[in-house]
Amino acid sequence: MSLLPSCRDVSKMLSEALDSGRPLGLHARIHLSICAVCRRVLAQFSLIRHGASRAPETGPALSDGAKSRIKALLK
């Protein structure tokens, strides 16, 4: 039985650390040092956070009907 946390445990710890801003514990850091897949997940979680907060707003414009309705309310 391994003393190190599993990939499943580490993926949870990565999410919690990202959220709390607290550093990872020693066992999780050792796991990361030998597990390329979990290192990749850490990078990808961070990238999703980066993109979610910076990605440009896309999509359709406000409909003409809604514009007319709101304009009437603002008169």
Binding site: S6, C7, V37, R40, Q44, L47, H50, G51, R54, A55
Partner: peptide, 29 residues
């Protein structure tokens, strides 16, 4: 204890940081 072969995260290659700021990323998100 480990990632399943089918679900193991793949390499995102290229320039993922740049890609994560694109309109295409926003639509996919």
């Amino acid at each position: 204890r480990h990632w399943s072969v089918a679900a193991a995260p793949r390499d995102w290659g290229g320039e993922p940081a740049k890609s994560a700021e694109s309109a295409e990323f926003a639509a996919a998100l």
